Amino acid sequence: MQPDSLIAELQNKNPKAFERIYERYSESLFGVIYNIVRDQHLAEEILQDVFIKIWNNAEAYNDSKGRFFTWALNIARNASIDKTRSKAFKNKKKNLTADFYVDILEEKNSFANSVDAIGIKKYIKILKPYCKQIIELLYFKGYTQAETAEELDTPLGTIKTRSRNCIQSLRDILVK
């Protein structure tokens, strides 16, 4: 089944189309979710919620506004970020041992693993170093623009401009 017809079937609430969509995208979406929440069980829960949202809101997808994967990725990313900003998540993280944080800090390839999980590693390599940093913080770690500005010790306006320019550069690379 072609991707466009598969999506049309999903929008018509065809359970078989939903299964195929899940098979096609769940691994990549899980990778993005896990890279934000850093908890296997929680990432699995969020993935389930994301696919429920995809099922319930499939008719809201419009192919003239972007690719289906991008639409689903935004749902996954937003759900993950919402979870990390919840009070329960923050309280849970307060009770973790220092080993949890050491593991995250020592994982030098986290950005490489993140971009590889969604299949854009070869495109990210082409970007300028500051673009890689900004994309990692904003899209893979779930930072806000203000948090990114603070982390990089850069004015907020500069982060906004650079993030817009970096995303445009990535779009230009992908469209070629």
Rank of each mutant, 00 (worst) to 15 (best):
Leu138Met: 15
Cys166Thr: 02
Asn109Cys: 00
Leu10Phe: 06
Cys166Trp: 04
Ser80Lys: 03
Arg67His: 14
Gly142Leu: 07
Lys65Leu: 07
Ala58Phe: 02
Ala98Thr: 11
Gln2Pro: 15
Gln168His: 10
Tyr139Met: 07
Asn57Ser: 08
Ile173Pro: 00
Tyr22Gln: 04
Phe100Glu: 07
Ile81Met: 07
Leu156Ile: 14
Ile81Tyr: 10
Lys94Ala: 08
Ala17Lys: 07
Lys160Gln: 15
Asp116Val: 03
Ala8Val: 08
Gly119Thr: 04
Thr148Met: 04
Gln168Pro: 01
Gln133Gly: 01
Asn74Gln: 09
Asp172Trp: 05
Ser80Trp: 05
Lys83Trp: 00
Asn91Tyr: 02
Phe30Tyr: 15
Lys53Val: 11
Lys65Gly: 06
Phe30Val: 00
Leu96Phe: 12
Asn113Leu: 08
Asn78Cys: 03
Ile81Ser: 04
Pro15Ile: 12
Lys16Arg: 11
Tyr101Ser: 12
Phe18Met: 12
Val115Trp: 07
Phe68Tyr: 09
Gly66Met: 11
Asp103Ser: 09
Ser86Arg: 11
Pro15Met: 08
Glu44Ile: 06
Ala58Leu: 10
Pro3Trp: 04
Asn56Tyr: 05
Asp153His: 14
Phe100Arg: 06
Glu44Asp: 14
Leu127Gly: 02
Lys83Met: 02
Ile104Pro: 00
Lys128Val: 03
Lys128Cys: 01
Asp63Asn: 14
Ala88Arg: 13
Thr97Ile: 01
Glu45Gln: 06
Ala72Arg: 09
Ile173Gly: 00
Lys121Ala: 09
Tyr22Asn: 04
Arg24Phe: 01
Glu19Met: 06
Met1Glu: 09
Gln48Trp: 03
Asp172Pro: 02
Lys87Phe: 05
